[in-house]
Simulated assay, not measured.
Amino acid sequence: MSGRLEFDFEWRITLFTLVLLPLLISLGFWQMHRAGEKTLLAAAFERRQTQAPQPLDEIGKQPAEQLAYLPVLLHGHYLPQQTFLLENRVQDGKYGNEVLTVLALDSGGLALVDRGWVPADPARQKPTEVPEPPSADAGSTLTGSLYVAPGKPFLLADTALEHGWPKRLQAIEMDKIAAVVGAALYPYPVRIDAGQPGALQVNWEVINISPAKHRAYAVQWFSMAAALFLVYLLRSTNLWQLMRRTPGDKESPHE
């Protein structure tokens, strides 16, 4: 055995490693990127919560990132017949829906208000019981915060809203909701504050996975990539034999 590092490229193992190794590394960097995004979201939320609510009709056009979690004040009345149920929302291990109801603003225009969570039948055999919001005669003044989704929702297929009310949603797609309502809506839904008129079970999660957990996932992916590379290196070279040799070993004449 010579003292030089020698390679033995077995094409199937080499191909497998060339395909999987970049994938593992890219997943690690993706998790690090998500950790950075979640850190910024949490910081933006904390910063915005110190601001006084602004009347929704006085907010001018601003970039989406400046509107995320912005506290707002709304004056108007609910249109209870125009209610949507956002499905697949779990709280405390229980399946349910988020209830979104259109609010007619006193200043004109419409806004979509996310009133919170209610329990629902996961098999969709029983109708979801939705408490009625305050009547239109009473009017409502409520506070909440704008919700700006961090990205486009992931949907397995293009969804169409069913007939009848309330209508079920797989994701909040404001253009489709506005088309069903038949009028322009404020571009972003308002997540209502607890204790406000029409509020249900409110427990908004700013981030569903903490930045620390994303970083832990990144370490796992990078560790898997390192392990794969090490296994490939030991399988495709004589590195292990070289490592096992002691400084006093002498090469055989036939080596």
Rank of each mutant, 00 (worst) to 15 (best):
V99E: 02
I192P: 02
Y186C: 10
L18Q: 05
I192L: 15
P71T: 02
Y186R: 07
M174F: 15
Y188K: 00
M224A: 12
N208Q: 14
L142Q: 00
D106F: 00
L230E: 06
V231G: 08
S2K: 12
E255Q: 13
K250Q: 15
K38S: 13
M1H: 12
K213R: 14
M243K: 06
L155C: 07
A184V: 13
L100F: 02
Q54G: 01
E205A: 13
S145H: 10
A43M: 09
A226E: 05
R168D: 03
G3R: 14
R115K: 14
A111N: 01
A123W: 03
I207L: 15
P150M: 12
D114K: 02
A42I: 14
A226H: 08
A218W: 06
S140T: 15
A44N: 14
A111L: 07
Y232H: 12
P153Y: 12
H75V: 02
H33P: 00
L155Q: 09
P211D: 08
Y217I: 01
A183H: 10
Q125C: 01
P247S: 01
P153R: 06
D249V: 05
T17E: 05
L27T: 09
V102A: 02
L234D: 08
W221Q: 03
F154P: 01
R115N: 09
H214R: 02
P127S: 08
G93H: 06
G96R: 00
N238R: 04
T83F: 05
A212P: 04
L56W: 08
D106V: 00
N238F: 03
P22R: 08
A184P: 02
R47L: 12
A52Y: 07
V113H: 04
A225C: 08
Q62M: 15
T101S: 10
T141V: 14
Q66G: 07
Q49F: 11
K176R: 15
W221F: 06
L15S: 12
P247D: 05
V231C: 12
V180A: 07
P211K: 04
M1N: 09
G60S: 10
A136N: 11
T14L: 05
V19E: 12
T128R: 05
I13E: 06
Q241K: 11
R115H: 11
K152Q: 11
N97D: 10
I59R: 11
F45L: 09
L24H: 07
L230F: 12
E6T: 14
E251P: 04
F222A: 04
F9N: 04
K126R: 15
N203L: 11
E10Q: 13
L85I: 09
I209H: 05
A212L: 10
K167A: 15
P131C: 01
H77L: 11
S140K: 09
V219T: 02
K213W: 01
A183G: 09
L20A: 15
A44P: 06
E37D: 14
A194P: 01
I192K: 03
P133I: 03
L27G: 02
Q31F: 08
Q62R: 15
T143C: 04
L20S: 13
T50Q: 14
L200S: 04
D158E: 09
A149F: 10
L161S: 02
L27V: 08
R215S: 03
V202C: 03
